[in-house]
Amino acid sequence: MSDVLDELRYCSTHEWVSSVDKGVVSIGITDHAQDQLGDLVFVELPEVGQVFEAEGECAVVESVKAASDIYSPVSGEVVEVNEALMDSPELVNDDPYGDGWLFKIRITDETELDNLLDADGYREVADA
């Protein structure tokens, strides 16, 4: 059974979003998603300053046998990316909710968070 943290919000496409801290949210992929993909070998991150709409394609995670697009859960501007993943994509496998975060976005509209799944809602998706 994969971990789903109660304090995060989720997308049905398996991204998680942290709570807002000074207008900024962290975004990553869920434990379930990394488990399904297997050992990641590469993460293609957005560039700082790029602006995305909610559900826009913004990153790619690659394992040996699959590549998966990452969609931005919310609208906003990328303010930081997890540079450590360039050399150590396995951080996403080892610690998807911690050191394996992907990027941070300055959120345009906090009410977009209300459209996302809570932990129970995502558990249903992941178990399906």
Partner: peptide, 14 residues
Amino acid sequence: NLPVKRLDDVRAAR
């Protein structure tokens, strides 16, 4: 029974 045992394709890509 082959020239190599199972290969590590994760290492190959990383």
